[in-house]
Design a protein around this nucleic acid. Structure first.
Lengths: 192, 192, 192, 192
DNA sequence: ACAACCGGGACGTCCCGTTTGT
DNA sequence: ACAAACGGGACGTCCCGGTTGT
């Protein structure tokens, strides 16, 4: 068990409290390792209320992934406007910097997918949605930037992104941001 | 990366039968999703026998990861001798091709790590061992190849490798091998 | 002891309807076994109306006990005037005869007290009030009758009363009235 | 809620631990007021283990009553031999003295019956068994003592016993033992 | 090797007492 | 007056990891 997440009290409407608690626990300890009884207790919600908002635990997991998807898109959309290629750098560098945050425990989408082997499960579908949006967004930026062969380049950069997210959790190397920047430069074939 | 999907009926000594069954089930369904009872039943072993060889389930998981580590090293060491740079291409391309295998379910090390959030757990230590060996091996090859700044390049290629393993499971795109080759070329700054 | 089993459909003002329904259900099925929802439904009263008249269920239970207390006192006070010793016989014999009534389910005060273990709870206080009145009344009658040591005799007769009420529910013996009369004679040391 | 029973830890085999905890809680707080989750937690027993020994909560309640029945019979049978009439006095006086014990909360049989209105329920049957045994035992003693009309006298004494048990909890009068002795004397028509 | 057992807990349906809108 | 929502909890079935007898 990792750092004990100290039963922080969530606030707001019941559904929001549940989702906040579930997000905190699922992300820090894993989906299968956290039971709904604990989520219900730590979010001070009645069991009936929980099951009114989320018909099953898997639905809660799906809601958690969808919520992370929306948060992730909102965060990207909220970035200050830059030239497309700068945006690409910014987005990818932020991934590398995320792994320096104290509570970083890897990518929530990759971690969730690892616990749901069935690619047709609703949770995996939600993960797929996020990844599809990511791909489309990156392809758009590279196209706007006039990059040659933007689709392939986007896919390669996405491979790098996944690697950064994984390595950020597993390797904890301090120079990941610099490494990431160098990698983007090489993939975009920019001479430094 | 090895192919951990085993056959349905394990053979041999009890310990080996247990490990083979555990490997098949852990890899295809996830560690937390597979119970000890099932492993014991499918490996036709008594529970007492199981606990004689593996003091706990976590120890079995660790043994599974260590075994995958050894299999992976052996597979790489068994590759036919090539010039160092060719070896790099071969190794990385095999990752991309692995995702075409029918039972491919992602990287066993990444999947296992995703279910063990505590970086100090024995399972995570075993995963770290494998990743460290991978890094040293790749750095050696790039050094032998006379590559400038082999350490950084190795780290970048490792980011790519993780991305390929993840994307191979989650995206199931058919052109992953070609994409991977192109990525390696760009990272090694080789003009095609 | 009053007859708390009421009619199926309560009439009159909302508060009275609630109390009548609660009396019928609490007495026949027990306090904890009857929920507020059912009382509200069967008394055709809005929940808000209910909580305007009774701040909590426990307050309703207390009101039920107090009401039974008042009904019991009124029933005794309404008895036709007799010599004090005859009154004593009449009162106690009525207890024994009560157990023959179709809906008899024991003494409402004893039953209520059994479900409220805390002697300092308002419900228990209300039960105590009734018992205290009973004692004073009986002592008065025995004093008026010129009975020697009226206080002790009253207390002994009260022990008998409790026993009659309990046995009337649990033993359902047909000769309880005769038995009771014989017991009173012996306690009052009257030769038959 | 009465004096908080401080989660004392039961010992021994699982079934015994459950029964001991249930006895403590049912008696001190009431049957309906105590949930099986709490019993399971305080007896450090798995839920599956609980349901193996007691198919339902009502069965546990029945077992609790039956156990009290057996304990009560054993306590009476363990009394030192005396002449029959002395035994009668001893038995009844012990009831009065029981109410002085610190944890006295009334008669477990009467309290349980008060929470089970249906006379045909298994719990009530178990209560009936105890009361029947009591009656037969008392009748036997009075017959052995050569008492005239032993059956009626026994029934009257049983009314007194119920009254003593009830009053001991509800009235908490300090002279209950003396009162009880006087009552027995009068019922047995013994001049003091 | 087989099976029973154990502590612990997950999951989900249902009910209770209470508050709050409408 | 009707109804929905809420915190809390009861109940019971099932599974997991692990121990223990044989």
């Amino acid at each position: 068990m990792p750092k004990p997440v100290g039963e922080q009290l969530a606030e707001g409407a019941p559904r929001q409290r549940v989702l906040a608690t579930a997000t905190r626990l699922f992300y820090s300890e894993g989906v299968h390792a956290v039971g709904i009884d604990r989520i219900i207790a730590e979010s001070r919600v009645a069991k009936a209320t929980f099951y009114k908002h989320f018909p099953s635990k898997d639905e809660l997991v799906r809601a958690y992934v969808v919520d992370q998807d929306e948060l992730g898109r909102a965060a990207v959309n909220a970035l200050p406007t830059e030239p497309p290629l700068s945006m690409v750098f910014t987005i990818i560098e932020r991934l590398a910097e995320a792994s320096r945050q104290p509570g970083y425990r890897g990518c929530p989408f990759l971690n969730a997918a690892a616990e749901y082997p069935d690619p047709s499960s609703p949770v995996r579908k939600a993960v797929d949605d996020h990844r599809r949006w990511n791909r489309e967004h990156l392809r758009g930026l590279l196209t706007d930037a006039g990059q040659p062969d933007p689709d392939s380049t986007a896919d390669i950069l996405l491979l790098l992104c996944d690697g950064v997210l994984v390595s950020g959790e597993l390797d904890k190397q301090s120079n990941l941001p610099a490494l990431t920047r160098a990698a983007v430069n090489r993939i975009l074939m920019i001479k430094e």
